[in-house]
Amino acid sequence: MTEVELKLFVLAGICVTASTIGYLLSLVVKKVQLARLSTWILLGGFVFLALSLILIASHSTGWSNFGSRCFLSLYAWAISGIYLGMQIKTKTRVLGAFVAPLILLFIIAAAGQQSDKNLVPLPWQGWLTTLHLLLAIAGEALFVLAAAAGAMFIIQDNLLKHKKPGKMSRFLPSLGDLDRINQSGLLWGFVLLTFGMIAGALYAAFVWEGRWFSDPKIIWALATWVVYGFLLHQRLAIGWKGFRMAALSCVVFVLFFISALAIRFYLPTIHSFI
């Protein structure tokens, strides 16, 4: 990481931290203006992160510098990008209070990594693996958004069911909007993850030998794909909407998040760079 790249990363970190504090404060004081301001600050973080990642990726050696720090930043970048993109359509600024802390978590994790460690092996790099990584990360970022919307749905549902539509309920987005965001997150997350996995599988099938599919991270990804596919099916075909789907997306997200961490730190995996 050059000095400029590092500075951009630090600026992004400052923006994400400030927007997280702003969003959480907006929940306390229940002022939508504060959430709106935090959204703009998050946009700043998104731009800085994008510049930092573009600079790293545009080195003459290809993206051979991409290691854990970059991939974790890429997660943070994808989640912020998708959340901000969605804001153009739905204007549910307050949702940031649940999304921004997760972005901050990825930034902190990225900052904790040494930039020259856990790099993607040079021979693996190519357009198919780039596609694989980008699509898979974007897909997972969409699941994060679905879970955040689900968590907020549960709180709003609780307030409305208990006939307490006070300040907090007025401040949170409507159940209808949250349910729609949950559906979009699941649907597009699943589509992107599917293509991402196909790209990865194609690459592995042609280039690698041996039992690559027994890699813990690949088994984890397959399980994720199956479970989210099941949720999506139940949602679209059977009609598991609203509260049930909100609760399930949260539970499934937490389980996969914890298991991903466990694989990363305790099991040998060929995806150790993420």
Partner: peptide
């Protein structure tokens, strides 16, 4: 002027909170 002070308007506000638009 943030919150409705008639039953019918309160019902409309709630409908928006449940269904969105």
């Amino acid at each position: 002027a943030a919150n409705p002070v008639s039953v019918s308007f309160a019902a409309v506000e709630l409908a928006k909170k449940v269904l969105g638009t």
